[in-house]
Design a protein around this nucleic acid. Structure first.
Lengths: 295, 295
DNA sequence: GAGTGGTCTAGACCACCGG
DNA sequence: CGGTGGTCTAGACCACTCG
């Protein structure tokens, strides 16, 4: 119809329609590439292109040497990124409390690292856990140095990276790296220990080191996954992009002291910000009845 | 090194290194695929795979029948999405004022559609403009119906879409669609007119129709571009993903009345949220000295 | 008309998976 | 072991751009 498309896109469209019409159900195995090539009367390479297109959209997942499968629709994990009271016991800001989130959202959660994540999971009755942090000391990348306000003239600035894998309901959910200057970590030694900071790094830094998180800037980007990310998320090569969320946290002197980079797989997560008064049921996500009409 | 990689990734890596080392500069044309194939001693298809890899990362752009070019690094447009005073004259919330953004960020901007965008541009001394809105009436998609709180039993719910192309410094920046129920648009007729709403749709709805935006929920996703998006952004097929930002706005009765979906091309934009007290120079983006040391 | 990338073919070999 | 997808080859034709 209307100006022919390349065959591979045509085939991708046909397969997508079968998925949409539930002729191919989540978890089903697609015909093998050979079979599809024969069925559509094209070469195998053309079929490969078509399937690669579906992979990019997240409609199918391919497991090498096994086959391509219609993606399961997990119901997404809702993570509300500003669902936090900046700095726990209400340090710097005084009366405002909920900090522009206030409203119906339960505040609390000491910000930073894994804590907000686990609180979200509890609220949604989902099981979340994080791996033990892997701690790394290395030279700051340019981006990290800039974010942490390390002067450009400092040669080989060292940073501490705390890296965690995070799971929801047993499935890989996100990868998080928190980065501090080595100078800070030497004063706040637990940042260097390969062990969870139970109360959260923000609370730890506040209580033990008078470092208050009084604000942060969040930034978003999308990019293709690294190999490590592909492995963790179980993506095959040429799959969809990941979402990168960077949070730079500022202390009471207006200096950045932490950079947290979290990488999500799209589709499995609803990454949210809430502002003002929003009805509670909108915040919890998952309207009660949703995809209940086509079985 | 360490467990051989496929040739096409190897070649992609080599090219990427040349780009990183500035042996290939932004705007430069890569050798043709034939030339590369000959130079690397591989087939043309392998070279195509390699270049496709670089396209996904945004390192190169390919213009069909002309060649592949090292991507220009535009300095990114910083758009701060919560840089707004909800509902202008401070309607529903009362005393809290700046709404969790307060701090040093200039408030103002009546929220919604193109207004925040143009205000951002002014602040950054950049030229922003939007196309005249294209207005469409059509049946709501499932997602739209859900977001706007249209009951599932309503058959063929109609919505009004206001679609705009947005440019920064003359270059395509983002595509924005604002969606309202047809019921609302019939009462608030200017939503149906193919003409900019100068004061912003939020202000219009408040002043003329007592509809106050007292909160919103933002959501992020990443996905491959549609054909239309590829055309607008000048992406070739198999290029990188786009970022989708959805904002659902709620009125004083806690009911959603607008869904705005904005699609950005990654790399060209820094999509931000600011919370709490953050030093002003961090907010304006672009630290004065930045990539000034490798010319 | 020459050059270019987009699409496509018809194969091939490999590594890994499962039985 | 046979089946699978990943990689790769050595071509081909087309549509488009450019000089």
């Amino acid at each position: 119809m209307a100006g022919r498309q390349p065959k591979y896109l045509e085939i991708a469209r046909e397969l997508q329609e079968q998925i949409d019409r539930n002729q191919l159900r989540p978890g089903d195995k697609l015909p093998t590439e050979k079979e599809l090539a024969a069925a559509k009367g094209v070469s195998e390479s053309t079929v490969k292109s078509a399937i690669s297109e579906l992979r990019k959209r997240g409609s199918v997942e391919t497991i090498p040497k096994k086959g391509s499968f219609v993606a399961e629709r997990t119901d997404p994990f809702v993570i509300t990124l500003n669902n936090v009271d900046l700095g726990e016991g209400d340090g710097g800001r005084g009366a405002q409390g909920g900090e522009g989130v206030g409203g119906p959202t339960p505040p609390g959660v000491g910000g930073g690292e894994g804590r907000a994540f686990e609180a979200e999971a509890r609220r949604q009755n989902r099981d979340a856990h994080s791996s033990v942090p892997k701690v790394d000391v290395r030279q700051a990348t340019e981006k990290e140095a800039r974010a942490l306000g390390i002067p450009a003239d400092e040669s080989e600035p060292q940073v501490v990276c705390r890296f965690q894998e995070r799971f929801v309901d047993g499935k890989p959910n996100s990868l998080q790296t928190s980065i501090f200057t080595l100078d800070l970590a030497i004063k706040a030694r637990r940042l260097l220990e390969q062990r969870n900071i139970q109360e959260g790094s923000v609370a730890y830094l506040q209580q033990q080191h008078q470092l208050e998180q009084i604000g942060y800037i969040d930034e978003f980007d999308a990019r293709p996954p690294t190999e490590e990310e592909s492995r963790f998320f179980g993506l095959s090569r040429g799959s969809l992009a990941v979402i990168e969320h960077s949070r730079t946290a500022y202390d009471q002197n207006g200096k950045p002291f932490r950079l947290t980079v979290t990488v999500y797989r799209p589709g499995d997560n609803k990454i949210r910000f809430v502002a003002g008064d929003v009805p509670p049921q909108a915040i919890t996500g998952r309207p009660p009845q949703d995809h209940g009409h086509d079985p």
